[in-house]
Amino acid sequence: MPRKPRVDIALVTVGAVGLLLAGCTPASVPPAPSGSRVSSSVPAASSAGGRPSGSVPASSRPATPGTVRLGFAGDVHFAERTAALLADPATAFGPAAAVLSAPDLTMVNLETAIAVGGRPEAKSFTFQAPPSAFAALRAAGVDVVTMANNHAADYGSAGLAQTLAAIRDTGFPVVGIGSDAKAAYAPYYTQVNGVRLAIVAASQVREETLAHFTATDSAPGIANAYSDRLTAAVWAARTRADVVVVYLHWGTEYQSCPNSDQRALADRLVAAGATAVVGSHAHVLQGAGWRPDGSYVAYGLGNYLWWRSFGNTQDDNGVLTLTFTRGRVVSAAFAPARLDERGIAVPVTGAVAQRILGQWDQARQCAGLLATPPG
Results as ranks from 00 to 15, higher is better:
Arg3Met: 11
Arg6Ile: 00
Val7Gly: 12
Leu11Thr: 05
Gly15Phe: 00
Cys24Trp: 00
Pro26Lys: 05
Ser28Tyr: 02
Ala32Thr: 11
Ala32Arg: 10
Pro33Glu: 11
Arg37Asn: 11
Val38Ser: 06
Ser41Glu: 14
Ser41Gln: 13
Val42Thr: 15
Ala45Cys: 09
Ala45Ile: 07
Ser46Arg: 11
Ala48Gly: 13
Ala48Gln: 07
Gly49Glu: 10
Ser53Gln: 10
Ser53Asn: 14
Ser55Val: 14
Val56Ile: 15
Val56Lys: 02
Ser59His: 02
Ser59Ile: 01
Ser60His: 14
Arg61Lys: 10
Gly66Leu: 05
Asp75Trp: 06
His77Asn: 14
Ala79Gly: 08
Ala84Arg: 14
Leu85Gln: 03
Pro89Trp: 08
Ala90Pro: 00
Ala97Pro: 04
Pro103Ala: 02
Thr106Cys: 14
Thr106Leu: 07
Met107Val: 07
Asn109Gln: 13
Leu110Phe: 15
Phe127Tyr: 15
Pro130Gly: 14
Pro130Arg: 08
Pro131Asp: 13
Ser132Arg: 11
Phe134Ile: 08
Asn150Glu: 12
Ala152Asp: 12
Tyr155Asn: 04
Leu164Thr: 07
Ala165Gln: 15
Ala165Arg: 14
Asp169Thr: 14
Val174Cys: 09
Val175Ser: 01
Val175Trp: 00
Gly176Met: 06
Ser179Val: 12
Ala181Glu: 07
Gln191Thr: 15
Asn193Trp: 03
Gly194Lys: 08
Gln204Pro: 04
Gln204Thr: 09
Val205Phe: 10
Ala215Asn: 07
Thr216Glu: 11
Asp217Glu: 14
Ala232Val: 04
Arg238Lys: 08
Thr239Asn: 06
Trp250Lys: 04
Gly251His: 01
Ser256Leu: 07
Pro258Met: 07
Pro258Cys: 15
Pro258Leu: 12
Ala274Tyr: 05
Val278Tyr: 02
Gly279Leu: 07
Ser280Tyr: 00
Ala282Gly: 01
Val284Ala: 12
Gly287Met: 07
Ala288Gln: 01
Trp290Cys: 14
Trp290Tyr: 05
Arg291Gln: 07
Pro292Met: 01
Ser295Val: 00
Asn303Glu: 02
Leu305Arg: 02
Asp316Val: 06
Arg326Cys: 00
Val330Arg: 11
Ala332Thr: 01
Ala333Ile: 02
Pro336Cys: 02
Pro336Thr: 09
Asp340Arg: 09
Asp340Gly: 04
Glu341Arg: 13
Gly343Ile: 03
Pro347Gln: 11
Gly350Ala: 10
Gly350Trp: 04
Gln354His: 13
Ile356Phe: 03
Ile356Pro: 03
Trp360Asn: 03
Gly368Cys: 05
Leu370Tyr: 10
Leu370Gly: 02
Leu370Ser: 01
